[in-house]
Amino acid sequence: MHERQQVRHRYAGHWAAWPPVTGAAVMATGILSVGLSLTGFEVVSVVALCLATALWVLLAFGFSAVILEDRRRWESIADTPPALTAVAATTVLGVRFELLGLTPVAVSLLVIAVLVWPVMLIAVLRHMTRRAPGAVFLICVATQGLAVLCAVLAPEVGDWLARVALCLFLLGLVLYVDALARFDVRQVLTGAGDQWIAGGALAISALTGSKLLASGVWSGGAATTLRVATLVLVALDLAWYAVLLCGEVARPRLGYDVRRWATVFPLGMTAVASLSVSAATGVGWLEGVGRVLLWIAVAAWLPVAYGFARSLVGRAQDRSSPAAGDGRPLRVRRRR
């Protein structure tokens, strides 16, 4: 029994060395899987889904280990915006599984996200600060992630779920305004990668609007209002995309940082939102934009995944060192 507790403690310490924003790796890989499926690259899409699911499972086990074995660590991260990547990642996977027709899996992931979301969101909102980094927009992303999954599942579950999705969609927009008021705009030039969530939050909001339109629950003036709102959101997202890209060109930040997953996710989400909004509104040129942006996102995923893999190798080497057995959290080797 004592040896088993030691193993759990070592695993908790091993996982705790990764910041919560690591969940953005699942979000990024999962949304690329969605985009690749929408553009007909099903085999590559399924491979990406398998990678995202495997990482989600590992992080979920680690998440549980920290709660059980290191409550102090849990309390120190549960009230920070990056913790909401757990909710967002779960909903992204749910959307992809629903596209595969695996509704029971998608519903199960929705239930998990619904149980975790209010607890984390309330904790994060209670500890919000001014001049926040881009991760602050995760309060919107997590909420819109729930809305998207509800809207996608509505045809299978019932129209009532579409109405729940609409409420979450509106709440997500309110939370976006709150996050924008707190965002330190200097992050456009100095951020380590998560500044891109400022645009990604609008992208997932536009995706939600497109899925609500596609649900067929609304008609007449309500449908027209929803269509206009969706198009405005995707336009604002593309504007953010241009601003953030200019920031990267003006101040290149080429070294690997785990927060770069929070760059890949908005790139992929903007592509998927463009594709979905095009299908829902009939604006044809958005499909071409979405296809181009998807391959930009894939190109960005490759070096970030390489840096992540190198970090994993470094952690494995640290675990094999004598210090790995003393129960202390392991250091993450940073490569600049």
Rank of each mutant, 00 (worst) to 15 (best):
V114I: 12
R96K: 13
I139F: 07
F183G: 03
V177R: 08
L110T: 14
T90D: 06
L161D: 09
V107M: 05
A179E: 11
L109Q: 08
C140R: 00
W160C: 00
G94T: 10
A78I: 12
A86H: 06
R126A: 10
M120N: 01
L202S: 01
M120L: 15
W117G: 04
W160R: 08
A147L: 05
G200E: 07
P133K: 00
T143C: 05
W74F: 12
T90Y: 12
A83R: 03
V105M: 15
R163D: 15
T90Q: 10
A203V: 05
R182P: 06
L100P: 06
E75N: 14
C140G: 03
V119E: 12
G193V: 02
S108L: 08
G101L: 03
T90R: 11
M128G: 09
T80D: 15
I204N: 03
A123P: 14
P82Y: 07
T85S: 11
L125V: 11
L84K: 04
A165F: 03
R96C: 13
A206T: 01
F97A: 08
L146S: 02
G145T: 08
A88D: 14
V95G: 02
D79T: 14
T80E: 15
V185G: 01
A106E: 05
Q144S: 01
A135D: 09
T85Q: 09
L102R: 09
E75W: 13
T91P: 15
L161S: 04
A113P: 13
V111M: 09
L202Y: 06
P118H: 05
W160H: 15
G134Y: 04
P82T: 12
V164L: 10
V164C: 03
S76Q: 15
V124G: 07
L153H: 02
G172H: 04
G199M: 02
A203G: 06
W196F: 06
L202F: 10
W160D: 15
I204M: 03
A83K: 00
L168I: 00
V92R: 13
L168H: 07
C167A: 12
L109H: 03
T103I: 12
V119L: 05
G191K: 07
V185C: 09
D178Q: 12
R96P: 11
E75V: 01
A88G: 08
V114H: 10
A123R: 15
V148C: 10
A179W: 00
D178R: 11
T80S: 15
I204D: 01
R186S: 02
G199D: 02
D194R: 00
Y176Q: 14
A165E: 11
T80A: 15
D159Y: 01
